[in-house]
């Protein structure tokens, strides 16, 4: 079932601000969650979301398809806006790991203990996500934060269905391991190799490269 009617989709393509408002109401939370996960800064995510909806208003006429196509277009636009933001900052999103205060909106309904626990959880999740490959991370964010299906994620990222499912599966397993406090064999091997490099510099000369943990 689609989030909004085909009539609204036609309005979006015609540049009708009322139709854009309906789409905003349906997808704003998911889009903001996705952008927050991408840029790790709520204020920046809000700005990028505004830019994304303005693009939808101006370029909506280029969308071919109905409501589903508009949803994919919106997340794809947000994806590229986040990439542009990273390029401008010339830094990776991992740089901001461990600063959940920049993501969370002020929540006066929760008590201080609850907030502290939530902040701790957020920090653990972000730390775990930072150890995943960028593709796994993005697939998981689109799948579980934005609620897109595998085919929709494929269209957003320009990948086929199988590749998306594979990235999702590996990402889920790695995330579960990391959050459960386990260390994978790959991680252990990386540490061994790193130790060996320190002791035996010739290993580097032979071209053996350390395998990054959780690359699937």
């Amino acid at each position: 079932m689609s989030l909004f009617s085909e009539e609204v989709a036609e309005g979006v393509k015609a540049g009708d601000p009322k139709a854009i408002e309906v789409v905003y109401t349906a997808l704003a939370d998911r889009l903001l969650s996705y952008l927050c996960a991408r840029v790790r800064d709520r204020s920046t995510a809000e700005d990028l979301m505004e830019a994304t909806f303005l693009e939808l208003l101006q370029k909506g006429w280029t969308i071919r398809g109905g409501a589903a196509a508009i949803k994919v277009w919106l997340f794809r636009s947000a994806h590229f806006n986040a990439l542009d933001h990273h390029r401008k900052l010339s830094r990776r999103p991992e740089d901001l790991v461990g600063d959940p205060s920049r993501i969370e909106a002020e929540d006066h309904a929760r008590g201080p203990e609850e907030l502290a626990l939530a902040a701790d959880d957020a920090q653990r999740v972000q730390a775990a996500l930072a150890k995943l490959s960028s593709e796994q991370r993005e697939v998981l964010e689109l799948r579980y934060v934005s609620g897109l299906s595998a085919p929709e994620i494929g269209r957003v990222l320009g990948k086929n269905d199988g590749a998306v499912r594979s990235l999702q599966h590996r990402g889920e397993r790695s995330l579960a391991r990391l959050l459960a406090g386990e260390d994978s064999g790959d991680t252990r091997r990386t540490m061994v190799l790193a130790g060996r490099r320190e002791r035996v510099p010739s290993a580097v000369k032979r071209g053996s490269t350390p395998v990054r943990a959780n690359e699937g």
Partner: peptide
Amino acid sequence: AVAMLRRTLQQRVTPEVRARHLGSV
């Protein structure tokens, strides 16, 4: 892990932000 991911990354648009964005539109 997935539940934790959802819970911690879920965000809500505040009414002020919504008004600002729709005003811009």
